[in-house]
């Protein structure tokens, strides 16, 4: 079992919005809804966060901010777009400076529609996000191993990497169940 789902820490960023959804997110933390019941904590720090809650649409100026927060979060991480603004640009879609929803900048895992999204819907979205988080957690070790392999290949230079990549990729795949089978034989 993965503990990620039992202690999801969130970070909240409000883009180009009317602040309606922003306030609804904060409402989730109040005694009325009390998301800490599920172990959810609102951190102001991307390095501590597991879930990125974005409200509001993306404009030219907050692209680097959103990207930076996303990149600073350690994996596994999940992005939840809250409100119709964050989903597609919403009421601001036609504005000259608006890019659209959050997914124009970073990959989004869960969309919570609504204008404004209700706290119940937001909590629902976060809980949906937990499922994605658990899936990502399961894939993480393989992902990191793959990256390490890639990095060590890059260190040998482009030419060497092209030569060695073929046998190396087949290496770990065959060495798993097959070699153990051979030993039993």
């Amino acid at each position: 079992m993965s503990y990620v789902t039992k202690s999801p820490w969130v970070i909240h960023y409000d883009g180009s919005s009317c602040n309606g959804c922003d306030i609804e997110v904060l409402a989730c933390l109040t005694p009325m809804y009390d998301v800490e019941r599920f172990g959810i904590i609102n951190t102001g720090n991307p390095k501590h966060a597991d879930i990125f809650l974005v409200t509001g649409s993306v404009n030219e100026q907050n692209i680097p901010v959103i990207k930076q927060i996303y990149e600073q979060m350690p994996r596994p991480k999940v992005v939840v777009a809250i409100g119709i603004c964050a989903t597609s640009g919403g009421i601001f879609k036609e504005c000259y400076n608006i890019m659209g929803g959050v997914d124009t900048v970073i990959p989004v895992d869960v969309y919570v529609p609504g204008c404004a999204a209700r706290p119940e819907a937001i909590i629902d979205g976060v809980v949906k996000g937990l499922g994605v988080l658990a899936e990502k957690r399961a894939k993480l070790p393989a992902e990191i191993a793959e990256e390490k392999r890639q990095a060590s290949e890059d260190a040998f230079g482009a030419g060497a990497a092209a030569e060695t990549s073929a046998p190396e990729t087949s290496g770990p795949e065959t060495s798993g169940p097959e070699t153990s089978g051979k030993e039993e034989d």
Binding site: S2, Y3, V4, K6, S7, P31, D34, E36, R37, F38, G39, K47, D50, P74, R75, P76, R137, L140, I144
Partner: peptide, 28 residues
Amino acid sequence: TARMQGRFGPPVLQPFYDVLKLLEKEAI
């Protein structure tokens, strides 16, 4: 703390969940 603030609060074992979760995260 949660009860003092009129909230229900997390499970008593929550700090352990938090630490176990942190151990599962990517190392940066």
